[in-house]
């Protein structure tokens, strides 16, 4: 299958290319960039030297439609609205890694992103790309929107608790830590090494944009509006997310019951590992042990004194939080083995 990547010079686009170059069913036929037209891909992504002689081209909708069966869009939020629509109208299959088609309600773009969505009619055409939640819809989708990295990591840990009506849905607190690659390749003064190294920076203690996605998905599961409080922090790692999801129990539950609930939901899922080990180095999910993989590791602990259930989840923001999810969705949409090209054990130590 021939694929194209729009916006392949960024971290996410580069990661998509890295995965697809080794994918047994995919052939990367076109990569685009606005800044690097004519440049070899490996000049921007040095780790891909020797894997491809592709060069960046300009975005040409007709050319890409003629040469590709499926397109990934990995462009900044707000700029994918037109690109995705143009490919959709040409009948192309699209996997969008921006936020532009994640939210179903157009008003949520005003609330979380501060702009009006120019094509609200297209939001209902997009499937939220979390296979554990929407696998059947993804199979037949023309447009899949990959979730935000912290949103998917948090949602996966919380979803079984909501589904089983275990927790107070008025008090859910998501505390996230994320590595520097989550900020993208663009860069600001805050992402320069001198300012980023050693940091534990609460960069959006309230109203982070991924909150909208978590609320959307959990509300759908609950069948009622759910509010989530989220506070992300920038920490001194390159890749990785840890979500410490604080919840409060509505009814008594013990550890064995929680194991049962999580196993029932994720026991057959290829990219979810349940981590709650009394022995060894890895007692609870830790991003250090998922780097380079598509796994979302999930664990829990009980604080009976405060009626609190802490659901923990860890992922690699560029893999499960972006490119890994995208390729998993491509596999599902194309009828390939869901694990093809992304079933890697994590890289460790890093």
């Amino acid at each position: 299958m021939k694929v194209g990547i729009v916006g392949a010079s960024g971290y996410v686009g580069g990661e998509v290319v890295r995965l697809l170059l080794s994918h047994p069913e995919a052939e990367v036929s076109m990569v685009t960039s606005t800044k690097h037209v004519g440049e070899y891909l490996h000049r921007i992504h040095p780790s891909l030297k020797g894997f491809t002689e592709l060069t960046f081209s300009e975005l040409d909708y007709d050319k890409m439609s003629d040469n590709c069966d499926l397109v990934f869009t990995a462009v900044p939020h707000g700029t994918a609205t037109e690109i995705v629509k143009a490919f959709y109208d040409r009948g192309m299959k699209i996997i969008d890694l921006s936020a532009d088609y994640r939210l179903h309600n157009a008003d949520d773009y005003t609330k979380w992103y501060g702009w009006e969505h120019p094509h609200p009619d297209y939001l209902s055409k997009s499937i939220f790309g979390v296979p554990e939640l929407h696998r059947d819809k993804i199979k037949n989708a023309q447009l899949v929107s990959c979730p935000g990295c912290m949103a998917v990591t948090s949602t996966l840990a919380l979803y079984p608790l909501i589904k089983n009506d275990l927790i107070d849905t008025d008090h859910i607190v998501v505390d996230s830590k994320i590595g520097s690659s989550g900020a993208g390749a663009g860069g600001t003064s805050g992402t320069q090494h001198a300012m980023r190294a050693g940091v534990i920076r609460p960069y959006k203690p309230a109203k982070h944009r991924h909150t909208g996605e978590i609320e959307q998905e959990l509300s759908e599961i609950a069948g009622k509006k759910i509010k989530v409080s989220m506070s992300p922090h920038a920490v001194d790692v390159v890749r990785g997310i840890l979500c410490t999801n604080h919840t409060f129990l509505k009814k008594e539950v013990d550890e064995k019951e929680l194991w049962k609930i999580y196993r029932a939901e994720f026991g057959e899922e290829p990219f979810i590992r349940l981590i709650r080990d009394k022995n060894g180095l890895y007692k609870f999910p830790d991003p250090k042990f998922v780097v380079g993989s598509n796994f979302c590791d999930i664990g829990f602990d009980l604080d009976e004194d405060n009626n609190r259930l802490i659901a923990l989840s860890a992922s690699d923001n560029l893999m499960r939080g972006a490119a890994g999810s995208a390729v998993q969705n491509m596999n599902i949409m194309s009828g390939f083995d869901e694990k093809q090209g992304i079933m890697y054990s994590p890289l460790t130590p890093v």
Binding site: W259, R276, D277, K278, N279, G280
Partner: peptide
Amino acid sequence: VSCSDCGAD
């Protein structure tokens, strides 16, 4: 003996 899932001994 150790449980491979939860690590209890």
